[in-house]
Amino acid sequence: MIKLHQLSKKYEKFEAIQSVSLTVNKGEIHGIIGASGAGKSTLLRLMNLLEMPDAGEVEVDGQTLTKLKSRELRQARKSIGMIFQHFNLVANKTVYENVLVSLELSNVLRKERPGRVMECLRFVGLESLMEKYPAQLSGGQKQRVAIARALANKPKVLLCDEPTSSLDPNTTAEVLGVLENVNKSLGVTIVIVSHEMDVIKSICTKVTVMANGKVFETLATTPQGIQTIDNHPQYFVDQLKKDKMDHA
């Protein structure tokens, strides 16, 4: 589904990505992990050309993005969804309008829009919050709105840039659950960049480890399931006591 061929990207003198080749297969949940500065976010942003590579080719769903004219690239981006660490919702639009805007960008017929928006909001479980503004939502809910927005155009790929890194463990589980569902029931190929090992282990079927702008290793993994955390105060106490025991 995604093929990166000998990609390189430099910032000033810093070589963020050095001749990286990588294939993401259809239907995968492909994790990218590495230390900060390893180039994982840059690599993800190269997949929809939010960053332009200095050398190499990017192919998504059979189209070589690096060869497209700007109009064709915009068209291609509509079938590549993306979500971000800080959600990047329009704060002055309601939940409904935030999802609607992505349909307005691609020429979906006006009368088909409301139904599609509601379908997406229902998928992420937020149809009851459609009139709310992002400021009134929790982090997890904001990220689910972002997912609904990304899904509105029925993308084939969903790029996730640290989607849970500003969320607490409970909401992380909530968002990961939705992502897994996007993959399983809609068949969307997912690429997920994270520095959190637990996140990568929980849902990824393949993982690329990056270091210093290069691929260190890519390996197939078995998703270990999403850990849900008990919100009961006793749980926190138990965890704290357990750690003490381990170190004793």
């Binding site: 929809n48 939010l50 690239l73 915009r74 068209q75 291609a76 981006r77 509509k78 590549i80 993306m82 971000f84 800080h86 959600f87 990047n88 919702l89 329009v90 002055n92 639009k93 805007v101 992505s102 307005e104 960008l105 691609s106 972002a146 927005r149 990304a150 155009n153 790029l159």
Partner: peptide, 23 residues
């Protein structure tokens, strides 16, 4: 990030201005 999200959705410059920036 909001502008970036708009571009990732395939917005034209005109759409970035009227549907994101000014809003």
């Amino acid at each position: 990030g909001v502008i970036e999200a708009a571009i990732s959705m395939g917005a034209t410059v005109r759409q970035v201005i009227f549907k994101f920036l000014y809003v």
